[in-house]
């Protein structure tokens, strides 16, 4: 027997109509309302992102396919990889920098990434174990790096490694280290990039430490208590409880750090301007030189696209991870 729609029970029964079409319509109507509401909330954000992120990105990509003579296809990219200022593999294997902006970015990642992620993790764990008045001060001092504007950070790095005012050359000089270790690090090609990387470790470790501290606070204490009862050492607790449970946080920190390193600009601009002789140049600074010194928007766009391409895998992984959650 088929009951009339009027005879259908209301409430819970509404979603169980045997007539498919009205149900679909009802559902799609409701969905439409939800979509309209969602779009209403998102509209301003989407318009802003569209204007200030999507449109410039498309234009940049478009520009990168042209040069002063017209459509160039991927010629700009081919030129970049043949340019000593971007990659100088021959010199990389034999002599001190400059090795090209791309290789400098890679060196930056290879040194900076493990140090900031590892140091942040270790500091977070150590500070979580110690109950003392100075822990808050130490945490604040380390976190200061992340709230310091990078332009100021660049100036600090410049002075930190200055021959006269800098702590590092003074200490190393007192220990009998030769030039350039006892001189102005930012003035010498052997030490300029290293000075920037070391300075940036200080600037970014606070970020890693704070995120790991937040992650630590979510780990159930009972796990540690159980491990202690079983006789696990501190190191074993760290290896088998802390590290695996902090893995999601560590991955996020590593991803964010990687993206930060790829687009590094401010501190290089202020501290060394990419010098001496291009020994501390990075991709973002090379992009700036192309755009505002050479007045070549095509090469600058190609470099910008290259930076985006390098960051895409990490960005994709990050987005997928968030969607999965």
């Amino acid at each position: 027997m088929r009951s009339s729609p009027r005879a259908e029970p209301r409430g819970k029964g509404e979603g169980k109509s045997r007539r498919g079409l009205p149900l679909l319509f009802w559902r799609s109507s409701r969905r439409r309302e939800e979509w309209v509401a969602a779009l209403g909330f998102l509209a301003i954000g989407l318009v802003l992102i569209g204007f200030f992120v999507i449109w410039p990105s498309i234009r940049t990509l478009w520009f990168s396919l042209f040069d002063a003579e017209g459509f160039a296809g991927v010629r700009n990219f081919a030129r970049l990889f043949g340019d000593r200022e971007i990659v100088d593999l021959v010199r990389f294997l034999r002599r001190e920098p400059p090795w090209g902006a791309l290789l400098h970015n890679l060196v930056w990642i290879v040194i900076h990434l493990p140090f900031t992620v590892g140091l942040g993790l270790i500091l977070a764990v150590v500070f979580s174990k110690i109950r003392s008045w100075w822990v808050g001060i130490a945490r604040g001092a380390i976190y200061l790096g992340i709230v310091t504007p990078l332009i100021v950070g660049g100036v600090i790095i410049r002075f930190l490694f200055d021959k006269h005012a800098g702590m590092a050359p003074q200490i190393l000089g007192a220990l009998g280290a030769p030039v350039p270790w006892s001189a102005g690090w930012t003035a010498y090609p052997e030490t300029a990039l290293l000075a920037l990387v070391i300075g940036s470790i200080w600037l970014w470790t606070g970020f890693s430490m704070v995120l790991h501290s937040a992650g630590l606070s979510t780990i159930d204490r009972e796990l540690y208590e159980a491990a202690q009862i079983d006789g696990a050492s501190e190191l074993a607790q760290f290896r088998y409880i802390t590290l695996p449970l902090l893995r999601p946080v560590t991955l996020v920190v590593a991803a964010m750090t990687f993206l930060w390193e790829l687009k590094i600009f401010d501190i290089v601009y202020v501290a060394t301007m990419g010098g001496p002789g291009g020994a501390s140049n990075v991709l973002a600074l090379e992009m700036y030189f192309s755009a505002f010194r050479e007045l070549d928007p095509y090469r600058a766009s190609a470099i910008a696209t290259l930076i985006t391409l390098f960051s895409l895998p990490v960005g994709y992984w990050f987005a997928r991870r968030r969607l999965r959650r």
Binding site: A187, Y188, P189, M273, P276, G277, E294
Partner: peptide
């Protein structure tokens, strides 16, 4: 001016500490 000016400045910074370059 232009890119050459920036390169001139930067290359001289290198020369000042590495005359061998």
């Amino acid at each position: 001016g232009g890119e050459w000016q920036a390169a001139f400045w930067d290359q001289l910074k290198l020369l000042w500490v590495k005359p061998g370059a």
